[in-house]
Design a binder for these strands. Structure first.
Length: 221
DNA sequence: CCGGGTAACTCGCGTACCCT
DNA sequence: AGGGTACGCGAGTTACCCGG
């Protein structure tokens, strides 16, 4: 199905865009199979976190356990307050009636791997997850823009100074394609041998010739 | 403080069409 | 046949208001 590929690709790109490196798993003690209930609880959690000043960009998917119970996985960026998450989740599902598990980045893990991990759930459950017409397979906070232009590069571990030069070339190419009025998002793998860069149109800033940082455009200019 | 209702807005999904 | 793209529908998100 074409929607599967599109959903997988979008999840992967959104995870990379927000730089997701932590995975939050919310579960119920009881066997909750009602999708409406899970989405409702997820909405309440989001609202509770928002009111606590802890609104976070996320990409969420639902996974079905072997017993049939649904539970959400959330890909988020950076360390989240587990105690706050737990307190809010327990308020919603009842004290001790659920689990909150936050998994941080492991050695060798990356936003790329987490993105693959989440998109795997989509393809895995695509065929066996009961789903009504127009229901979404995944959910994310608003404003997560998927880049329209993206270049990936791989460098040899033994390369010296190549990384910096390649980085400069990548930036020049991104600015050439997207335009100098843009902001750049990037991610570099742990070993520095793999990464990506993406450009987003942004009329409020401008890259000058040879500058390493964009400068804000004031209303007078 | 918290939950529910509502409205405006965003954007995922299915689908049709075109091109290779 | 399969990939790319555009479009409309409507599910989902968010902010705000109000009542308990």
């Amino acid at each position: 199905m074409r929607a599967r590929g599109r959903a997988k690709g979008t999840i992967r790109k959104k995870c990379l865009t927000i730089g997701a490196d932590h995975l939050v798993t919310l579960t119920y003690r009881t066997n909750v199979e009602d999708r409406e209930r899970v989405l409702h609880d997820l909405g309440r959690l989001r609202r509770a976190l928002s009111r606590s000043g802890c609104s976070m960009p996320y990409v969420a998917v639902l996974e079905r356990q072997q017993r049939g119970a649904l539970h959400p996985h959330l890909a988020v960026k950076g360390f989240q307050d587990v105690r706050l998450l737990r307190r809010c989740w327990y308020k919603i599902v009842g004290n001790g009636q659920g689990q909150v598990n936050v998994r941080g980045p492991r050695p060798g893990s990356s936003p790329v791997k987490l993105a693959r991990y989440l998109s795997k759930y989509i393809s895995k459950d695509f065929d066996n997850m009961p789903r009504e017409f127009e229901e979404h397979r995944y959910f994310c906070s608003l404003g997560v823009k998927v880049p329209t232009e993206k270049h990936e590069f791989v460098l040899d571990r033994s390369a010296k100074d190549v990384e910096r030069k390649m980085y400069t070339l990548m930036r020049q190419e991104a600015l050439r394609r997207v335009g100098v009025r843009c902001c750049l998002a990037e991610w570099m793998g742990g070993s520095g041998t793999y990464g990506w860069m993406a450009g987003f149109e942004d009329a409020s800033i401008r890259w000058g010739n040879g500058s390493s940082q964009p400068v804000p455009i004031t209303s007078s200019s």
